[in-house]
Design a protein around this nucleic acid. Sequence first.
DNA 1: TTCTGTGAACGGATTCACAGCA
DNA 2: TGCTGTGAATCCGTTCACAGAA
Lengths: 229, 229
Amino acid sequence: MRAENIPEVVILRLPHYARVLSMALSEGRELVSSQELGERLHITPAQIRKDLSYFGRFGRQGRGYNVRRLLQMLRQILGLDREWPLILVGVGRLGRAVLSYPGFAPEGFRVVAAFDSDPDKIGRRIGPLVIQPPSQIPETVARLGVLIAILTVPAAAAQEVADLLIASGVKAILNYAPVTLKVPEGVLVRDIDPVSVLQSLTYYLKDLPIEPRTLQPSLTPGALFRPEP
Amino acid sequence: MRAENIPEVVILRLPHYARVLSMALSEGRELVSSQELGERLHITPAQIRKDLSYFGRFGRQGRGYNVRRLLQMLRQILGLDREWPLILVGVGRLGRAVLSYPGFAPEGFRVVAAFDSDPDKIGRRIGPLVIQPPSQIPETVARLGVLIAILTVPAAAAQEVADLLIASGVKAILNYAPVTLKVPEGVLVRDIDPVSVLQSLTYYLKDLPIEPRTLQPSLTPGALFRPEP
DNA sequence: TTCTGTGAACGGATTCACAGCA
DNA sequence: TGCTGTGAATCCGTTCACAGAA
């Protein structure tokens, strides 16, 4: 099919496909069916086949998909076959937590600079990075060819910083601030907002029948969390 | 309308409505139109009116919505007019960051217990909490009436911990582990997975035309980030 | 047989467009 | 005139169902 009108939800699912394929690969699997991928992700097999068909024909009828090959293709489609330099703005508690999160690097996302407007923080080191003032953003973004920024400033400062990032050439923002950013056409924003997720969860919980919440002996974990002898 | 088949996307938008209404309220606004709400959230006015119509008729024709009243209604609909006790499992870097995140408490989400299986961590204090072993989960959940858990354990442990949480009576999991959890009917899972979000962003960035990334003098921020005299 | 790839059918969310009320 | 509330129309993603290849 290879159309240009690929639904965004499809793109959002591809990283999950890649993740389970990695797992399957490390388990030594050579082939997987859409059925099996679906079971691991709670997605219907038809959905998976349709999603993949947007990009080409990667399976073999009667057999399934070659794990290594499909993973390779997905990484290429997603642009994961390279390193992506990121910058992070806002080195408060949240920013430091994101900086120290060990999950980015193995996937090729490297935070190459960190910024904060607090004079007490500027010049301090966080791991290998020296915190810089926001005035350095344009130069750094240009010099290092940064396209993605992580925004971990307080809500009140988010729009201002986003404007500066965009003026500097950033094309995508991973926004942790609980704010709807206004950005020009062509700039992408994705929000990470655990509080609003919790606030929607409570809708479903708010009048749950009150169950007897007595402790059953069977629930006490036995071997769980205790090393096997 | 008040139907029971309210689309989940609608529920996901309600917290955003509540957020901008709070802002409008603190700005002293008394009335807002669906138009204005839409502009602040990049949502069409029709969408907002339709969403709200699932729950009742809150607006006045020709005028708009009473900010205070609509906010009040939304908080009630979402179940935000009370405190929600949470527990957190997995006090690694990520878990500690989530624990120290100051955004939960003001919205009524209070982490009332933290668990980790590492014997070196058990007994240590984090703020007001003493880290407990997972074996304490069932008792704590039952005693405190906890319905929501935050899961910040390594991917390899996530399913096992989720099973224990669910057996203990937890009905919703905010899952930070990059794993698709298997849960029984009636248990809700929401994933927070910044890496997979980044991995989908790169799809749109991967063959962006290379612009001249020279630094324009106009981009150097002037007053920005410098206190007004 | 088995399992992919894909048009067609379906279903559900968004948008339209307008009646109705202030 | 201004803006809500809402059926109807539209749009778009998911699922179906089957042809086709191994």
